[in-house]
Design a protein around this nucleic acid. Structure first.
Length: 210
DNA sequence: ATCCGGATCGCCT
DNA sequence: GGCGATCCGGATG
């Protein structure tokens, strides 16, 4: 664990980010979610991690955003209340978790792409037996959902109360943030909508940012 | 009813 | 750095 994660865990003032936090421009939310804590409670216990990588998906005009397909049963959460979760299944294997935002009536969200483990590391190791090293527990969007126990059952849930919450964490200065194109998409590949804590070892690799 | 591609991961080379 | 796994949503017929 890094110093920053230790600070986050030590802080006892971890309050849920209010719905108003998410009812803003998606890029702003994506930037400000860096350093916040994503937490999931299940019958097995609590697992949480500090957000170190995010991506913004900014509306129907963003062809990489699921909402580009319009409003369907699948994409309905993107049109829902700011501050709820949008959880989807991808490649027949993995879950990915987003926080729904709401700038100017656009269906949009922030994908949580990587975490630095904070609580429940043993639980994460159990859930991710394939991960030989702790660095591989939460350094990708599918991995972090498996580590925290996030599934489709969490789709549409509010992010302000258990089982799924996002808590305010340590402030990350602009000098520690890097912005790049998004990972793993085939549309709008040049849009700089990915935010990472520069140099954090838990940031996912993905494709190089050209 | 059927087909195709995907906001990924892990294992292989 | 490449590829198979394995399911679902959306599109087409």
């Amino acid at each position: 664990m890094t110093k920053d994660a230790a600070l986050s865990r030590r802080s006892s003032s971890l309050a849920p980010l209010p719905k108003a936090f998410f009812a803003r421009d998606t890029e702003t939310v994506a930037r400000e979610l860096l350093g916040a804590i994503l937490e999931c409670r299940t019958d097995d216990g609590i697992a949480s991690g500090r957000i170190v990588e995010t991506e913004a998906y900014v509306g129907e005009h963003d062809l990489a955003c699921h909402a580009a397909a319009g409003r369907t049963a699948r994409t309905a959460p993107l049109y829902g209340a700011p501050g709820i979760a949008y959880v989807y299944f991808i490649y027949g294997v993995h879950w990915c978790v987003n926080a729904v935002t709401r700038p100017v009536d656009e269906p949009s969200a922030v994908l949580i792409r990587a975490l630095e483990p904070v609580k429940g590391i043993d639980l994460m190791r159990q859930r991710r037996a394939a991960a030989r090293r702790d660095i591989d527990l939460t350094n990708g969007p599918g991995k972090l959902c498996q580590a925290l126990g996030i599934t489709g059952a969490h789709n549409r849930l509010p992010l302000q109360k258990p089982p799924l919450r996002i808590l305010s964490g340590s402030r990350v200065p602009d000098s520690g943030v890097a912005v790049t194109p998004r990972i793993g998409i085939t549309q709008c590949v040049d849009w700089p909508l990915r935010w990472v804590i520069a140099g954090n070892p838990f940031v996912s690799r993905g494709k190089p940012a050209a």
